[in-house]
Amino acid sequence: MNKTNINYPHPVLSSANEDYIQSSFDISLVDEPSIEENNVVINVAYSLLCDGLQYLIASGDAQVVIYMNSTVAEYRQMKAFDSDKTEMNIKINRNDINKSLQLKGYIIAANSIKSFSLPEHNKAFFGTVPFSLRKGDIMGLATHSFNIPLESYDPLADRPSIFSIRKQTQHPKEEVSSDFSGQKITIWLNEETHNKYRTLYAAPDTRGVLSAFFAAPVLVDTLYFMKNMTEEEKIEYESKKWYQVINHRLQELKLDISSDVSMTKIANLILPRIFSSSVEALTQLCEALLKGGEKDEN
């Protein structure tokens, strides 16, 4: 539910418009969401600067609510703050949601309001014209929203690869390309290369070398992508498993990609020594092939 660019038929307190003067509304996470038994626990708070809306909330005519949405799990709920509290504890059964949970803050009409006019309304737009609100009508939009990843990276768990090598079907002429939009970094190979990759992959000795061929340059690509991310992109990508893995590794090793010049150097440090270990793997493969050749000669 994206309500960022809607012209409401009544004043709505939002940082995206000038319907209100000298007023603001926002939500924040009190601390990091956590797991307690079988529940995801989230502590949320709101801040509101607007006497008119404060009065309506205290009188029960308006409510501050948190809208929660986990799309693939068909989860969509709302929870209201108590009228006299600005913090709220939310518990959601972790089996009711999946992948990520979106949180948005709203102020809504708790009942219908016949004559809605506040001193904080921008007189230049609305004069003193009162509005009629229905129950549930949006009166305020929080400046910030949150996208909480639900499958956070556990550094103690076994680490599956953050790369997925797939056959290119959309653009068959592209020999190789990378894609950061999924939970793993996808390396797209054209059909011919992908078939050869699959054939070679069947032999365990080749896997280290194969991964270096593709994963190493793509990892460098990825680090440059992360280095140049905007704040909005960071929020968008923090639910991706690959992003969490790389970010965690950077923090673990106290590496700052914004200040370092060489992403190649950083790539070699984080996963694990991807360039230097591939040279070792190639050496071992060649030795194995040479030994095999000697056996044949004998």
Binding site: I6, Q63, R76, A80, I108, K135, G136, D137, I138
Partner: peptide
Amino acid sequence: YGAVTLLDSMTSDD
């Protein structure tokens, strides 16, 4: 209706 009103604030009877 849901563009202006938070449908989730309503009961199924509403």
